[in-house]
Simulated scan of single mutants.
Amino acid sequence: MNPTRIATWKPLYSADMLRATGRAPIAPFRRLLGMVARVAREPAVHTLLRRCQLVSGVVLLVYLSLHLINHALGIWSLDLAGRGLALALWVWRSVPGTVLLYGASLLHFSLALRTIYGRRHWKMPLTEWVRLWAGLSLPLLLIRHVVSTRLASSLYGFEPNYERIVISLITSGTQGLQLALLAPGWVHGCLGLWLRMRHRAGARRAKPYLMGLLVGLPMLSAAGFVRMKQAVLALCTGPLRTDPKLVAHQLSLDAWRHNILMLYLSLLIGAFVAGQVRNRRERRRLRKATMTV
């Protein structure tokens, strides 16, 4: 072949020509194959844990959704909200519901500790920081809720209804905290589900409606709680009085709440510190290895 022709030879199909004709160059296919190969090399245990995280998160999101819907029913009447609460208690206090709810909570929290321990760095996008903050605040709600309702019912015979719950929140001054803690848990669950589903065409088409649900349901829940508070205050002619069973065992319930909260914070801090120690040891081992080479 003529050397001059070799020097001036150009490929028959350049990248610009392929893009102009609608054909993609080969590089994206190579990247796609590389991604598929990396996914295929992931251990089966890692894939199983990711699925467990998704399933447990969906269970908790369903629980929060029903909780918010129950509050929203208070917009219409206190009686309707009470019926919704009775149905929710029947579901979650049954043996399957109890195992499902608390099993999902423990599993999701354990996987969160594993994630905190396993992180090599904390450079994350803003969405991940928001999801992390919202998720870590969710147990604060669950701890208070479990102690004030389920534990008080199991140990001291307290039977919750919305009138008693609202009066208890008003007298303790924690009604604002209760509403504030519901929203982060809802945001965490919705963001986590969206990050898993955002690549699907149906999820992208439904994004405006999902955004409306994300914002609208907590607002309806807050409005329902305010409406129930007004209804309870209208029914009470005298000063508000907390249920005598809660008053008699308040110190014990506060001790339970404090101990569980300290355990939760200790596990979080322990996982973070252990991960940082592990990272420092790995960096030190890597420096020694590079120095000996």
Rank of each mutant, 00 (worst) to 15 (best):
121 H>I: 01
9 W>G: 02
192 G>V: 12
92 W>P: 04
271 A>E: 04
212 G>P: 09
185 G>S: 07
181 L>E: 06
210 L>T: 09
254 D>H: 13
69 I>G: 11
253 L>R: 12
76 W>K: 10
71 H>K: 00
232 V>M: 03
104 A>P: 08
53 Q>Y: 15
79 D>C: 07
51 R>M: 05
248 A>Q: 03
32 L>G: 05
163 E>P: 07
111 L>Q: 06
235 L>P: 03
160 P>T: 01
8 T>Y: 03
133 W>L: 15
162 Y>H: 00
185 G>M: 08
201 A>P: 08
238 G>A: 06
147 V>Q: 10
247 V>C: 05
37 A>G: 14
274 A>E: 09
72 A>Q: 00
189 G>C: 05
40 A>G: 11
251 L>I: 14
121 H>G: 10
138 L>M: 14
200 R>N: 12
70 N>P: 01
282 E>R: 15
93 R>I: 03
258 H>T: 12
129 W>Y: 14
264 Y>R: 03
29 F>P: 04
105 S>Y: 15
186 W>D: 02
161 N>H: 01
186 W>S: 02
61 L>Q: 09
217 L>K: 03
221 S>A: 15
209 Y>F: 15
18 L>A: 07
63 Y>V: 08
2 N>I: 08
41 R>Q: 09
163 E>I: 07
110 S>H: 08
167 I>V: 15
172 S>K: 15
185 G>W: 06
112 A>P: 11
92 W>E: 04
216 G>E: 08
237 T>F: 01
162 Y>C: 00
140 L>Y: 11
80 L>Y: 06
74 G>I: 04
158 F>Q: 02
99 V>Y: 04
87 L>P: 10
89 L>A: 01
4 T>R: 15
14 S>Y: 00
9 W>D: 02
17 M>H: 14
156 Y>C: 03
136 L>E: 05
231 A>G: 00
68 L>Y: 02
43 P>E: 12
203 A>T: 13
46 H>D: 14
124 M>G: 10
164 R>G: 04
89 L>K: 00
84 G>T: 01
180 A>C: 08
136 L>F: 07
258 H>I: 11
63 Y>M: 06
88 A>E: 01
287 R>M: 12
140 L>G: 15
45 V>G: 12
113 L>T: 10
282 E>T: 14
195 L>C: 06
268 L>V: 14
276 Q>C: 13
94 S>D: 02
150 R>T: 09
114 R>D: 04
95 V>R: 05
91 V>K: 02
275 G>S: 01
27 A>G: 01
25 P>H: 00
184 P>G: 13
192 G>H: 10
188 H>A: 13
237 T>R: 02
286 L>G: 08
60 L>T: 03
52 C>K: 09
102 Y>S: 04
216 G>R: 08
240 L>T: 05
222 A>Y: 11
136 L>Q: 05
198 R>V: 05
7 A>K: 15
108 H>T: 04
212 G>F: 09
130 V>L: 10
60 L>C: 06
270 G>Y: 08
158 F>I: 03
93 R>L: 07
127 T>H: 12
246 L>R: 08
198 R>M: 06
120 R>L: 07
137 S>G: 13
6 I>F: 15
77 S>I: 00
159 E>H: 05
53 Q>S: 15
226 V>H: 11
250 Q>A: 11
187 V>N: 10
76 W>H: 13
167 I>M: 11
113 L>R: 11
116 I>P: 06
2 N>C: 11
186 W>A: 04
